[in-house]
């Protein structure tokens, strides 16, 4: 309990959660510094943009995950829902629907999965862990069944725009006729992540739904007795998480310009790790979008930096696991005193 007792919901206060955020931010800066020494190519504009691009999918998932975790729940289904949303979008594009409405349908499919999670948790009174574990298998199963486990490709150039497009790309034609990329441009997914993160933080801090999400996670019975519609608040959070899983599915599949029904396995764990590193408490009532964004980037920078330093994927997992445990341990330690 000590882990989440001393936290305030207001980000501008010099409270435990702000301290946590500052220390997470310091960790992020230290990582960047360390990797700059191990690999000269790490601290370059282009690599920075690559990290942004790579982190956007986990970041989007972490925003929804944070909302769910603050209610005191957990959403294990986001990796599978991401795949199912991609499959839905891919199939309707193949059926002749234009890209934008197809992507909207994909996001709606994700939201529908989240909505079902919410209903199962609130109306059938199944614990979030079990309910979303079930949805994780169901959504993955549907995605594989619909596609016969085969990727859907040749979705057209327009499908790849969201994942591969950039703002402010500067390309110069050289004398020899080849183009030279001066500035790779800010990837669309990074801009999307920033916009969604701002909206998410705004909802959590400034709107009634955010206040209710915190209250439900802090003391569900108190929230109910105070007149908060607990069921509706939870359903809202899981639906948001599902919709964001759908959105990150669009970004990921668009980047590959292919729909992979087995994409996104274990992504939920990265999203949970990002939220927890960013200071969210699995006991509920504590967490912030800004913290989770820092958490996402810690994971993103770790992956990218370790890759550049030539560390194997297996070692990377070990390191990220240690970081998750360490982040929570330090948080507990600080809150005890």
């Amino acid at each position: 309990m000590a882990a989440n007792d001393g936290k305030s919901k207001l980000s501008f206060l010099p409270s435990g959660s702000t301290l946590h955020k500052i220390s997470a931010l310091l960790t992020l800066l230290l990582l960047i510094l360390a990797f700059s020494f191990t690999s000269p190519a790490f601290l370059t504009v282009n690599n920075g943009l690559t990290v942004l691009l790579q982190t956007s999918v986990i970041g989007l998932l972490a925003i929804g995950m944070t909302m769910v975790i603050i209610t005191g729940g957990i959403d294990l289904s986001v990796g599978s829902v991401l795949a199912l949303a991609g499959v839905v979008a891919g199939l309707v594009i193949k059926a002749g629907v234009p890209v934008i409405p197809a992507m909207a349908l994909g996001i709606m499919a994700g939201a529908a999965c989240g909505f079902v999670n919410g209903l199962v948790i609130t109306k059938m009174r199944i614990t979030p862990f079990v309910a979303t574990l079930g949805m994780m298998m169901i959504a993955r199963g549907i995605a594989l069944q619909l596609t016969g486990a085969a990727p859907i490709s040749r979705l057209g150039e327009a499908f790849g725009t969201l994942g591969n497009g950039t703002f402010f790309r500067v390309v110069e034609m050289q004398d020899n006729g080849f183009p030279k990329v001066i500035f790779a441009g800010v990837p669309y997914p990074a801009v999307l992540l920033i916009i969604v993160a701002i909206i998410g933080a705004f909802l959590l801090q400034k709107r009634q739904i955010g206040r209710h999400i915190f209250s439900v996670g802090s003391n569900e019975e108190a929230a109910r007795l105070s007149g908060v519609n607990v069921d509706r608040t939870k359903i809202w959070a899981y639906t948001a998480s599902g919709a964001l899983a759908g959105l990150s599915g669009m970004v990921l599949m668009s980047r590959l310009v292919t729909v992979q029904p087995n994409e996104g396995v274990m992504y939920e764990l990265d999203a949970i790790a990002a939220s927890v590193i960013g200071g969210a408490s699995l006991m509920g009532g504590v967490g912030s979008i800004s913290g989770s964004m820092i958490g996402s980037f810690i994971i993103g920078v770790l992956r990218n930096g370790l890759n550049m330093a030539g560390t194997s994927a297996f070692i990377q997992q070990i390191i990220i696991g240690i970081v998750v445990i360490g982040a929570v341990y330090i948080d507990q330690f600080r809150n005890k005193k």
Partner: peptide, 15 residues
């Protein structure tokens, strides 16, 4: 019936 993580004002007006 107070939400421990929220402050006095948030609790007073909760709901």
């Amino acid at each position: 019936a107070l939400a421990n993580h929220l402050d006095a004002a948030a609790n007073l007006f909760l709901g």
